[in-house]
Amino acid sequence: MLEVKNVDAGYGSTVILQDISLHVEPGEVVTIVGANGAGKTTLLRTISGLVKPRTGAITFEGKDITKLEAHDTVDRGITLIPEGRQLFPDMTVRDNLLMGAYCRHARDYQDDTLHEVLELFPRLRERLDQHASSLSGGEQQMVAIARGMMARPKILMFDEPSLGLAPIIVSQVFEVIAQVAATGTTVLIVEQNVFHTLKAADRGYVLENGRMVLSDDADALLQNDHVRQAYLGI
C-alpha cells in the first residue's frame, strides 16, 4: 500500500534520513521506533509531503507521491497526526474536527464522519464548543486523533502519540489506536515508547541515526537483544 524506497531527506544542509526503505500493507499496524532525534518525525513528515526527499521514491497505492505537497497527500488518503497534537488552539473542538474533514474526499461525508468519530470518543461530545486550548493534554491528543480520522484516511500516521502524557493516559491512547486499527484503517506509528508501541503493532522497524537498522515482527523485536538493550534498558 505504502512503499518508501531508498529515501534520503533532511533540512537545509543537514541530512537526517539516509537510505530509508519501508513498506506498509493494507490493514497493518506498523511501528517505527527509535531514540529522540533518530529521524522518526522527519520520516513521517517526508511521507506526508511536508519535507521533500532528496533521493528515493515514495509510492502509495501504486502511484508515485514523492513530489506531492502535503495538502495533496491528504487528498490521496494519507493523514498524519503530528507530534505534540498541533491543534488549532483558538478554534472550538467542533471546528478543529471539521477542519479534519477539509480534504476533498471527506468533505461530503463530514456530518456522518463526525457522528462516527464521536461514537468512538464520547468524551469529546461534551467538549465540542470549548476552545481546543482549554482541554487537558490527554483530551487534546484525543481531539488530534479524532481530527485525523475526520479525513477518512486510508492510512493514519501517528507521530509520538504518547508524548508528554501521563502513563495512564498513554494506555488509553494506545487503546484508541487499537480501536482505530480495528475499523480497518491502516496505521503507522512512530514512537520512543518502545514497549507500548511494539505491543500494539504487527510489525516494527528500528531507526537509529537516520538509518533503518532492524525490521521484524513486533513480537520478535520485543525479544531482540539489541532492542532490549538499547531501548528497554534490560
Partner: peptide, 19 residues
C-alpha cells in the same frame, strides 16, 4: 534508580516489568 518501581512505571512503561 533504574530498578525503582516508580521509575519503571513512569518512564519505561507499566507493563514493562511483566514483559
Amino acid at each position: 534508580v533504574v530498578r525503582d518501581e516508580h521509575v519503571i512505571e513512569a518512564y519505561l512503561g507499566k507493563e514493562f516489568t511483566h514483559a
